[in-house]
Amino acid sequence: MKLALLLGITLCFLLVACGSKDAANNSQSSTKFTQYYIQGERLYLQHCSNCHQKNGKGLGLVYPPLDSSDYMDQNLPAVICLIKNGSQGEITVNGKIYNQKMPGVPNLTPLEIAEISTYIYNTWSHKAGLIDVKQTEQILVACTKEMKE
């Protein structure tokens, strides 16, 4: 009787574990995701890690952290826009105020920005899944419009 119960519980665990693996398949282990992620890491090391560090921890109150960031969690469109256009003025991350001008990288393509975003949103504490180029393009069009207004 006990053995049956144990078996049942084990089976349940197995099912749950497999189920979550299926969900991850859709976002974090597809070929497309892997391509985005690998390119994203390369671009992150080229354009971002000087300030935000390889480990995403930032530097003091000069450069905000990315590894764990409520700002990133709540502002995906703003993050995509500022990778391209930069950011100026105060920004609050995890309750701390940062105020260092960030230069944008205007010559990045929407695909490259989607790759960087996929990398930073799926590394350290983040598990947001793939950030697609189409989604990124739409956001970029919207923020370019905003800037012109």
């Binding site: 000087n50 300030c51 230069p103």
Partner: peptide, 16 residues
Amino acid sequence: FTSCRTICPIMKTQML
């Protein structure tokens, strides 16, 4: 210089 984004952030990380 503070607005430098190339090597200075790395230098400041190391100097820290």
